[in-house]
Simulated assay, not measured.
Amino acid sequence: MSIGNSPQDERPFEEDRDDREEAARPSIGRALQQARIAAGLTVDDVSSATRVRNAIVHAIEDDDFAACGGDVYARGHIRTLARAVHLDPEPLLAQFAAANGGRPAPTPAAPMFEAERIRPERRGPNWTAAMVAAIVAVIGFVGFTLVKGGDEGTQASEGTAPTASQPPSPTPKKDKPTDPKPDPSDSAIAAAPRDKVTVQVSATDGRSWISAKDHNGRLLFDGLLKQGQSQTFQDNEEVNLVLGDAGAIQLYVNGKKIEDEFQPGSVERLTYTKGDPEVG
């Protein structure tokens, strides 16, 4: 009879290390909450930017995915919230899949014969019609050349000795003043009415989610603005903005460029009124 540990108690050191790393890794909800706080965003900001209700955002940060309505919706909410707080969603989705039985089965593709049946038939070029058109063009060109040559010989024989004709002196052309072209960056809002406040938001150095409201608090826009895209907002009194990544945004207010140097990744809350650009 041997004395010692049973085979069940002999676990490899690699498994112990994996268990410790798994225990040290934060949960999905905790990771999303930490990233949101690090970005300086509230739950209301994330909810406005993603259109995910506040209650669902709170539930996901508490690792309660029952309110999502199923694993497919839960994965979609995790991806949307991760992008809003500048977090890579793939590790979180892999962690969710490991805890919930893997990814859902893909939807089967349609049968191949359906696509083949509706594919239009290719027709070759109509060479006969092309040859007929070419022959007609050659005959027409030859006939036109013969007729033109006969007319010129008749005119030369009927007249007297031809005299060298001098070309008419060209009349001087007056240079028309060119209309000055407006700066492309200011042309979209240069004609902004003075009795309103006009704000143009352009994502010039990256992408950023933005939220815009009028003076009554009515939501004018909220969502992700990709690089190269722009939005213009107007109101009778003021426009309120929330910029998720202010360093990627260029602002034009009432026809003037805002020269504020926002830092990349910073969240800015701004209010602009009529007249000269001024932040409230």
Rank of each mutant, 00 (worst) to 15 (best):
A55I: 14
S165W: 02
R25L: 12
A192G: 02
P277A: 07
K196Y: 11
V279H: 06
V138T: 06
Q8D: 14
Q8L: 05
I139M: 09
L219W: 01
G265M: 13
K173H: 05
A67Q: 14
G69E: 04
E15Q: 14
H58P: 00
Q231W: 00
R79E: 14
A23T: 08
G223A: 03
I118S: 09
D175P: 11
D44A: 15
R51M: 06
V43H: 04
A59P: 07
A188E: 10
R194S: 14
K173F: 03
I3M: 09
G206D: 08
V239C: 03
A109S: 13
G40L: 01
D179G: 00
Y252P: 00
A99Y: 00
A161I: 14
N240K: 14
V201G: 03
A246S: 15
Q34N: 06
R30E: 13
Q227C: 00
R194Y: 03
S2L: 13
C68M: 08
D235P: 04
E114T: 04
L219C: 01
Q263K: 14
P167R: 13
F262C: 06
F141S: 14
D19F: 08
N216G: 05
V199A: 07
D175L: 15
G275K: 02
R30V: 08
K174W: 01
N236S: 15
D62C: 03
N5K: 12
S230R: 10
L146F: 15
P193V: 01
P172Q: 14
F141I: 15
G217T: 06
F221R: 11
K257R: 15
N254P: 04
A24Q: 09
A24D: 06
I78F: 07
L241T: 09
F221L: 04
M1G: 09
V142C: 08
A82W: 13
V132W: 04
I37S: 07
A130S: 15
A192M: 01
D16F: 10
S202K: 14
K226W: 06
